[in-house]
Structures are given as C-alpha cells and as structure tokens.
C-alpha cells in the first residue's frame, strides 16, 4: 500500500515564484497561504434554542448571529455566512477533528456539516497597502470605520467570489477562496501589487 499522502496546496507553485523578503520596500504587501485544519460549512436552524446550546458547547464559542461578523475562541473561528450558515475554521494547533465532534455532537439535529478543507484555501495579505490592494478588485467599503476587526464578508475580488476576513489593523486580511479560483486570485494579486511590491511572508 502506498505511504500516507500529504495534502497539496492549490497555490504553492504560484506563491513560490514570489520573492520571500524585501526589506528595502516599506510599501510592500506580504502574502502567505494559511493552512487550517478544519474548514467546515455548517447549516443549522438556530431558532431552536437547543441547537444553539448544543453548538456552543461543541465549538466553545457562540455562533455569530450578526451578519458578517466572526466569533473566535482560541483555535476556533466561526464566520457568519448566512442566517443559518457558518464557516468554521480551526487552526492546525486545534487538537481534535472538529468535523468528527460536530458530526457526533449534532446527531439527531437537523444540520448540515460539510467538510470544505480541500475545496478552499486561505490567502493572507498584510501590510499598510493591503487595503488599497484589495480595493482595486473589491467593491466593499474596507475603511476601518466600516470593515473593522472581527468583520467578514462574502464578496467578489476581481472576478472571483471570496470571503474576506479582517484580522487586524496592520491591516491584515484573510481571503478565503475556492480552490479552483485560488490560482487566478494569486495571479491577480501579483499584478495588482506591482506598484507596492509583494513579498512572500515567512
């Protein structure tokens, strides 16, 4: 039998063509691919209080009810995607499989728990010009007054759908993109970043 295979990134090749560090250029935008352990698309009717409690117990954090916001507890982030839909991300440090925990914990509930870990990836952009770079392809108002920390939004960048998540005010953003479009998005970022410089963050 073959050895245990390793998961393959969809944008590794494109990212590796970006220089890794450019201390000369202060305007540079830093790009990296963030690996998460779980990407789970969760659908659940939260008009039932029992569902909310059960879910909160498993996740260790309440699911956000306010549209376009993120709730975080340690290694677990829950992003609002719709009135009954969330994206759950756990970092590589998270000890268990959230997919298993949800599947077992929500038995008997009307829920849809779908593994998306191979179907999307996360690209992080960081640096003073990262907001300007995004503005080139994104019609959202990204001003910190409007799109602050803890915000997320499903929208379009250039010609592909993405989920943008504001990480902090450096500013830093996570872009969650479908696997098949990730390569295009990196190409677009490389082009849009030319006037600022683009470095692969280590």
């Amino acid at each position: 039998m073959s050895e245990i295979p390793t998961a393959k990134s969809s944008i590794e090749k494109e990212l590796n063509s970006i220089p890794t560090f450019n201390t000369l250029n202060e305007s540079s935008v830093f790009i990296s691919e963030k690996r998460f352990k779980d990407h789970i698309n969760l659908r659940l009717d939260i008009s039932d209080d029992g569902n909310v409690d059960a879910l909160g117990n498993i996740l260790g954090v309440e699911v956000p009810i306010e549209p376009n916001t993120v709730n975080i507890n340690g290694e677990v982030s829950v992003l609002w995607l719709g009135p009954d839909e969330w994206l759950i991300l756990t970092t590589e440090c998270y000890p268990n499989s959230m997919l298993d925990r949800l599947s077992k914990g929500l038995i008997g509930k009307v829920a849809s728990i779908v593994d998306m870990s191979g179907g999307q990836t996360v690209i992080n952009l960081d640096g003073p010009n990262s907001m300007n770079l995004l503005a080139k392809g994104c019609t959202l108002d990204l001003h910190p007054r409007v799109f602050g920390d803890g915000k997320c939004a499903q929208t379009i960048i250039a010609k592909t759908g993405v989920i943008i998540r504001k990480i902090d005010n450096s500013p830093s953003y996570d872009l969650i993109v479908r696997r098949s479009y990730a390569d295009y998005l990196v190409l677009w970022i490389k082009d849009a970043a030319r006037e600022y410089g683009l470095s692969l963050a280590k």
Partner: peptide, 11 residues
Amino acid sequence: PWCGNRDESEF
C-alpha cells in the same frame, strides 16, 4: 436585507 449595502455585481 441580511448583509446591507453591496455593489450590484454581487447580485
């Protein structure tokens, strides 16, 4: 009604 004001291109 859920997400607030967005550009037409998202719809």
